[in-house]
Design a binder for these strands. Sequence first.
DNA 1: CCTTAACTTCACAAATTTCTGAAGCACGCG
DNA 2: CGCGTGCTTCAGAAATTTGTGAAGTTAAGG
Lengths: 165, 165
Amino acid sequence: MTESASSARDADAVSRFVESFAAQLVEAGMPRMPARVFAALLSSDEGSMTSAGLGEQLRISPAAVSGAVRYLAQTHMVSREREPGSRRERYRVRGDQWYEALTNRDAVLKRWEQALREGVTSLGADTPAGRRMSETLAFFEFLESELAELMERWRVHREKTFGPE
Amino acid sequence: MTESASSARDADAVSRFVESFAAQLVEAGMPRMPARVFAALLSSDEGSMTSAGLGEQLRISPAAVSGAVRYLAQTHMVSREREPGSRRERYRVRGDQWYEALTNRDAVLKRWEQALREGVTSLGADTPAGRRMSETLAFFEFLESELAELMERWRVHREKTFGPE
DNA sequence: CCTTAACTTCACAAATTTCTGAAGCACGCG
DNA sequence: CGCGTGCTTCAGAAATTTGTGAAGTTAAGG
């Protein structure tokens, strides 16, 4: 009795957290379904769930799960695993992997830098606007190199605090 | 002749850059109009434009300018200035200000941390999910402190490269 | 004061995005 | 080899977001 009451409360608590954390992610610009799926994975005990499980907890169609997972996989926030001997698939959030994804807006940064370089060229490096853009470009290049070092420091810090993976 | 041809080409070049840079910002999650307005300001020689000027260059209504500027001001990407003795207002992108805005997702980070803390509590700090969340929380706290130092290093680096503001 | 320029707000129309149900495909299992 | 499960794709419905015109507000200038 206590047992079932407690697991019911847990499911509810999990769901509340999932939705509220997903809401924050959405507000930061992540599409809704990926955000919800990601939050669900993050709060699962295994760190992974099946497609069916996700659909059930979030009350969404298999199609929605599929779309959300595709997004998350493309952005390297989760990885897909086949369950051996079954058509089932598990989606997993791997500790190290998604921290990097968060900061590895590398692709994004690269494209911004490219756009800025074109801007400097086409506006003229000797114009005020061109100079402002050069500086902006320098900032992004700085940022890019710093982020790599930052992640390295995190790995060290993490290992000290939480022990090896 | 050469003069007018050259300024025509400039206007065109500016516009092309504005739109292409704005597109990158949009892809990174910024709403369209704010992105375009910001890009326009960034590539103006003064680093500032009037509402009318923005409307004209971007071919959008005063209402759209108003909305975009409100967004940008709230997120500290631009500041508003009154032109003395006129009802005109100028919107300005100040070098130091918007770098910080970019990294000062501080508000966002703070809310994520809050959500994660609630997650740890409600899922139980001793559960596997709870532990994963604690680690995530630690990552954000780490990130927050690192970002402050990173910006400080940038200020130094910038001053060396570009000279004092 | 009254006029009018400049920005803002509001309600609505349009465009875009998002999610679903249904059909399709692939593969493990009997 | 074919059945059935489980994921994916697709077309369309629904909801959300976005941008506009029009009315509203504030304040400069006569």
